[in-house]
Design a protein around this nucleic acid. Sequence first.
DNA 1: TAAAACTATAAAGCTACTATAAGGTCAATA
DNA 2: TATTGACCTTATAGTAGCTTTATAGTTTTA
Lengths: 135, 135
Amino acid sequence: MRIGQLAQLVGVETQTIRFYEQQGLLPPPDRQDNGYRVYTEKHGEGLAFIRRCRILGLSLAEIHELQSYQDDPHQPCTAVNALLDDHISHVRSQITALQALEKQLVSLRASCNDNREVEACGVLAGISEGNMHQQ
Amino acid sequence: MRIGQLAQLVGVETQTIRFYEQQGLLPPPDRQDNGYRVYTEKHGEGLAFIRRCRILGLSLAEIHELQSYQDDPHQPCTAVNALLDDHISHVRSQITALQALEKQLVSLRASCNDNREVEACGVLAGISEGNMHQQ
DNA sequence: TAAAACTATAAAGCTACTATAAGGTCAATA
DNA sequence: TATTGACCTTATAGTAGCTTTATAGTTTTA
Ligand SMILES: [Zn+2]
Ligand SMILES: [Zn+2]
Ligand SMILES: [Zn+2]
Ligand SMILES: [Zn+2]
């Protein structure tokens, strides 16, 4: 399988595949005489794994870590589970932060209606006055 | 006021101030004979405005847009309010996406306990099998 | 006077790609 | 046969919003 076929199969761009190879997430495939990369099914599985991790919001570093655990199949999976727990708490704190932000933005927005001049805009005034609860 | 004092006053790094100047968000200040930047109170207010916008999650482009409205104080503030509305919906869709993600991650995590080998890890299996509801 | 603290510019690094440029390879067609 | 088009190669730059590093000049302090 050449790079274009693999890309279509998994639904990524060819550059992304080369990028993952360069980042050490995908093992370098064999090459044809002309230099073209030749992929096997294993590569397809590896690439699909990476993509599913990315959809779950895992960073490339976290994916790399997961791969290192996979290379040692008889270790206990504690570290894998812990990695996921950490990631979940990342996501949760992002949610919390964004919810607080939304609240602030909504109350800021409520301080203006559309029939004012910029000079008297409640939104701009709200930002400028800086009555913001930081954090 | 020199750059270090301004930085301390507003609570940013000096490089950040130079960066904002370079990005056109902060007007270039006068210089001393030795080339040192000299700031006024106006610069302090401008910088504080930028920082409060950043805390609200506005992008530099959005801040730039707000500044352009401020330069035209007798226009109606419709565009300002609309910018904020857009930003609020950005934030809301981020929250929605993250909440869906959290749900997925939690259910994935529930498919494993800590007493397994990597080989049998429910988390890794869940990712590899790819039974993921995308989007 | 010499070190410490401050300032300046320019360039690289961060994340996870995406896009562009310039070129080599291959099969099919005119 | 020549050329088109689709594919492949590498290298480089751009995205966002800074942060870090390097290198050098200036001011303040001990
Ligand atoms: Zn994470
Ligand atoms: Zn308004
Ligand atoms: Zn926005
Ligand atoms: Zn497990």
